[in-house]
Amino acid sequence: MSEETSIDIDYVATLARIELTDEEREQFSSQLEDILDYFERIKAVDVAGIEPTAHAFPIYNVWEEDVPEPGLSPDEALLNAPEQRGNQIVVPKVVEDA
């Protein structure tokens, strides 16, 4: 395993908001490092002057006019809500202050 392909699994899991068990953390670390090693081969390619492809067939100016269309009723919108109150989604209190 090369030095540069080490992965800070806790940092990335935090970014991705995924709780990992100790087992998963260990298993993923080694698997992901194998995968990153495998990725090393892309570094040998000369990509100077090559445009990145974001879309296989880019087209421009796909849009709609600013005209409202019917949407969901609150009941439909909250059909699958884990917890609701007065047509709003309930989440644990979001507190930001010290």
Partner: peptide, 23 residues
């Protein structure tokens, strides 16, 4: 009133996709 101006895209439901507002 709350959650009366939504549709599947606004709620981020699985399968929904964005389309630009020209205005």
């Amino acid at each position: 009133p709350p959650n009366t101006l939504t549709n599947p895209v606004v709620m981020g439901l699985p399968g929904t996709l964005p389309v630009l507002n020209k205005r």
